[in-house]
Nucleic acid binder design. Structure first.
Lengths: 193, 193
DNA sequence: CGCGGGTTTGATGATGCTCAAGCCCGGTGG
DNA sequence: CCACCGGGCTTGAGCATCATCAAACCCGCG
């Protein structure tokens, strides 16, 4: 379970991990299973833990006054399903996060991060990498505002093709901010070429 | 010139600044004037400096194949007009940043940040605050994808009313991802109530 | 077999874009 | 002092895109 986290850290840092550090990491991250449709975080709650997604697929979204879900982010293996703001400040979140597939995650509290892990060089480097990844993702997303439906779909297919495999179309549509019927037609016309 | 930066740091940190630290900060940030319409960063360039905006107004945008500008972010006093990714990694940027009003900025290279400032507690805390602010801004923005034009405008008017004062409507429209005529009509109908 | 979740297809209409014209206002130069 | 210009804002008409609503279909599963 922790192996894939260790591998992830190794991939995204240059400082080597000592045995003691690996033990520390294994002791600190708490394994947990989240079943399909089960909440990891609900609007109004504080995001007590950052999660590393070992296996599964999850989604972050808001619900509007008409009860419609608006997907904000999607997560598969090696992503961090977390409301970063709520986690860092321990303030109530505006978002819901739940599992779309049965998922295995590793949990990390902000206190444990700061007191036990932050000082490990490889962890600090990985944190920076996570931050950069978040910036890339959201900047791209913001830049896509004002593009047409098909352009946004093409963007997503290029950047995160794995999402198209793992999530049903109505979720992808919500992520893109278009109606599921529009996405269906759009895919039809793309396939026709 | 540096006073407003010092004040900004004080406002967003808890650790006090020593005299020596203040001197260090003043020595490190390089003042620069940027005239209206002048580029601070162009697509393809590396963002060598992070900028603290002391006075003025700036914008970050992409240009599509039809030559249209798509505003990604806007900046006024106390914001940091910077392509964070390009700055952190020293890789070519995909964005343009230029001044919309004549502006005064304070420049900071990543090397100076890491070697001279990062270890100052108040600076480290301010960095975290900047990061949180960025997360708030972009998450809100992403969540607004899929809202209608008037809802997006209302969001912006609530979150950053100062932008509406400082930038002309066609820029606000581009920021929102709608046509300037649509924004004009929308404002008309809002005012009518 | 029937059910539920997901996808497709079609018809209709709203939303918002494009193009074009006119207006307002401040600045510049004759 | 006035004419003109440019940038920004408004307004209108026509049209494209996309949302909505509704029905049918598909398929895995109890």
């Amino acid at each position: 379970m922790h192996e894939s986290l260790i591998a992830y850290i190794r991939r995204h840092s240059v400082s080597p991990l000592t045995e003691a550090e690996i033990e520390m990491i294994k002791d600190t991250f708490i394994p947990k299973k989240i079943r399909k449709r089960q909440y990891f975080l609900q609007e109004g709650q504080v995001c007590r833990y950052a999660a590393f997604l070992v296996k599964g697929a999850m989604r972050q979204y808001t619900i509007d006054d008409k009860g419609m879900e608006h997907i904000v982010r999607l997560f598969v293996e090696d992503w961090w399903p977390t409301d970063r703001l709520s986690w860092m400040r321990q303030t109530p979140s505006e978002y819901n996060i739940d599992a779309w597939e049965d998922s295995d995650v590793l949990l990390l509290s902000i206190a444990d991060y700061q007191n036990r892990l932050m000082s490990i060089p490889a962890i600090a480097e990985t944190t920076i990498h996570n931050y950069e990844r978040f910036v890339i993702e959201t900047q791209k997303r913001v830049a896509s505002i004002g593009l047409s439906a098909d352009e946004r779909y093409a963007e997503l297919a290029k950047m995160y093709p794995e999402f198209l495999q793992r999530f049903p179309q109505h979720i992808i549509a919500s992520y893109l901010g278009i109606a599921k019927e529009t996405l269906s037609r759009l895919r039809g016309s793309v396939a026709r070429k």
